[in-house]
Computed example of a mutant assay.
Amino acid sequence: MTTETASPAPMGADPGGGRLDGATRLGLYETMVLCRTFEEAILREYHADKGPGFDIGKGLIPGEMHLSAGQEPVAAGVCAHLTTDDALTATHRPHHLAIAHGMDLRAMAAEIFGRETGLGRGRGGHMHLFDPATHFSCSGIVAEGYPPALGQAFAFKRQGGGRIAVAVTGEGATNQGAFHESLNLAARWTLPVVFVVEDNDWAISVPRDAATAVKSNATRAVGYDIPGERVEGNEVEAVWAAAKRAVARARAGEGPSLVEVHTLRLWGHFEGDAQGYRPELAEVASYDPIPRYEQALRSAGILDDAAVERIAAETGQRVETAVDFAKNSPLPDPASATSYVFA
């Protein structure tokens, strides 16, 4: 099957020949702003009590923290075509995807803070968000989400009804055996699954070109006789269009697709990462996709100062309510440390 490598469509264009309506474009913007606002709040709370210096084990949110600022176009563009009845598996950098897929912000924040009211009663933390209400899961293991997505897609196919699974991973995971095994099995069984690769150029500190033989992981789809498409530019509407094609194919029973998005990691691999390995670091902020999309919507007459301020205020209130809920929730009882585990 021929592999398609896509450049961004003209802003506002619909792959069906029309144009995205203003409500859809505004919704994409609102989703991205909500994702960023949540992570800015987590960033603030994470660093608030790590000093003096930086002690990763201190504070209300101890341990590593992987934030997805800059990758919001992937979450907004893909999840716009999903319902919470569809399954989504994500990576160790999951917040944007969880939010775009409809996860409850309060339960999510509580889990990040390690509180009893969290999704996993505070046991999992930010890399292990499991939510039956939205069929969302993630893991700190590289490429781990691909095989479970196949299991979910297999069940959906047997049940009928058009539900699909989406498996998201980073470009570094495309060299893992689980990635290739999953593509092969999904193609062989014609499963309703969409594979999404977030190519942010860096697998921790290893540049893509130093580890991967191909320039685009979309070309790897050809080896499994499925469509592959790469989206350049980190533009949410181009992601939306590519995801629309892949999701429609899966829902129609035509099998899996692979969509790779050349996206951007604005911040470090983890909080505390000095990023000395990034020669382009000084330029990164200028590629922030949210202000760029905001400007496009302003030019189209969809946004103005009042709308931007309203959205910022509403999302800010939602996020701060979630953070306050988390901080005021109880910590798990130490006596329950062995509860909810397999013996």
Score class of each variant (00 low, 15 high):
245 R>H: 04
317 Q>K: 15
199 D>T: 07
9 A>L: 15
309 E>L: 13
184 N>A: 11
97 L>G: 01
247 V>F: 04
273 D>A: 09
85 D>E: 14
59 G>N: 04
205 S>G: 11
143 A>C: 09
311 I>C: 05
9 A>H: 15
97 L>K: 03
228 G>Y: 00
224 Y>N: 01
289 P>I: 01
113 F>N: 00
234 N>V: 03
326 A>Y: 00
313 A>P: 10
7 S>Q: 15
271 E>M: 04
278 R>F: 04
10 P>W: 14
26 L>Q: 06
10 P>I: 10
261 V>P: 02
282 A>K: 11
276 G>M: 12
235 E>N: 09
262 H>K: 15
3 T>R: 06
26 L>E: 07
174 T>D: 02
273 D>N: 05
114 G>K: 01
182 S>D: 05
198 E>G: 03
287 Y>F: 15
179 F>I: 08
23 A>I: 11
104 D>A: 10
179 F>T: 01
151 G>P: 07
18 G>L: 11
265 R>H: 05
325 F>N: 03
168 V>D: 00
191 L>R: 03
187 A>T: 12
316 G>W: 04
252 A>I: 00
320 E>N: 06
228 G>S: 06
198 E>W: 12
117 T>A: 13
82 L>T: 09
283 E>R: 15
134 T>N: 02
116 E>C: 07
21 D>F: 07
99 I>V: 05
39 E>C: 03
85 D>A: 14
74 V>K: 03
227 P>Y: 00
33 V>P: 02
232 E>V: 11
145 G>A: 07
164 I>A: 06
268 G>Y: 03
56 I>Y: 12
168 V>Q: 00
89 T>S: 10
203 A>T: 02
152 Q>P: 10
295 Q>Y: 06
100 A>L: 01
248 A>Q: 14
71 Q>N: 10
327 K>S: 04
163 R>I: 04
148 P>G: 10
134 T>D: 04
120 G>C: 13
109 A>D: 01
157 K>P: 08
325 F>S: 04
210 A>K: 14
237 E>G: 10
214 V>M: 15
319 V>N: 02
95 H>Y: 13
291 P>R: 07
268 G>F: 00
310 R>L: 13
170 G>I: 12
294 E>T: 11
257 S>Q: 06
276 G>N: 10
149 A>V: 06
135 H>R: 11
276 G>I: 06
205 S>N: 12
56 I>D: 11
